[in-house]
Simulated scan of single mutants.
Amino acid sequence: MKHTYLYPIEDGELWLWRAARMDVPDLFGSPDLGAGDEEFALSVHLGDALGVARDLLMKRLESRDRVCIGRSYVVPGSHCVSAQMHERTADRTVRDVTLMLWDAPYFRSYDWINARNILEKTAGQDGRDDWEPIRAFFREHRVTKDNGKRTRVIPVWM
Rank of each mutant, 00 (worst) to 15 (best):
A123W: 03
M22V: 06
R71V: 05
K59S: 14
I113S: 07
R21T: 04
V153E: 01
K121C: 04
D37Q: 10
R54N: 04
D11C: 04
R88P: 00
S82A: 13
L46K: 13
D55H: 12
R150C: 05
D129M: 07
H45C: 08
D55K: 15
G12E: 15
D126M: 11
P8E: 13
L16G: 11
D23V: 03
E39N: 02
G29M: 06
I113R: 12
R21N: 09
W15R: 15
P155M: 01
G34T: 13
D130I: 02
G124Q: 11
L119E: 08
V67A: 03
P25W: 06
D65R: 14
I69C: 04
Y5I: 00
N147H: 08
W131E: 07
M1E: 12
M100R: 09
Y106M: 09
N147E: 08
L119V: 09
T151P: 07
R21A: 02
V24H: 10
A115H: 03
R54E: 07
G34N: 14
E140V: 07
S109Y: 10
L57F: 05
T144M: 09
M85E: 14
L6A: 04
D65F: 12
G127P: 04
L56F: 13
A35K: 07
P8G: 10
R116W: 14
H86C: 04
H86R: 02
R116E: 07
E39D: 13
H141K: 07
I113L: 11
V75H: 00
K2P: 14
Y5E: 03
R108D: 11
D126Q: 13
W102H: 05
A136T: 12
S63H: 12
H3P: 00
H3Q: 14
R128M: 05
V52P: 01
M58K: 13
W102G: 01
G127M: 04
F28I: 02
M158F: 10
M100P: 00
P31K: 02
V24F: 10
E87K: 04
M1P: 10
S82Q: 11
Y7C: 07
M100Y: 00
L16N: 10
H3G: 02
D23I: 02
R142I: 06
S109M: 09
V75N: 01
S63L: 09
I154H: 10
L57M: 11
D55A: 15
M100S: 08
V81A: 15
V75D: 00
F107W: 12
I154E: 08
T98F: 03
H45T: 14
I118Q: 07
R152L: 02
E62R: 15
M158D: 13
I118K: 09
V75W: 00
L6H: 05
D103C: 05
G70H: 08
D48S: 12
M58N: 13
G77R: 06
R66Q: 09
P155A: 03
V94H: 03
M85R: 15
S43L: 01
V94A: 03
L33R: 09
Y5K: 06
N147L: 08
A90G: 10
Q125G: 10
A123F: 01
T4M: 01
R135S: 08
V44P: 02
G127W: 01
T93A: 15
R95V: 07
D32M: 01
Y106D: 03
T122Y: 11
T93R: 01
G12Q: 12
M58Y: 11
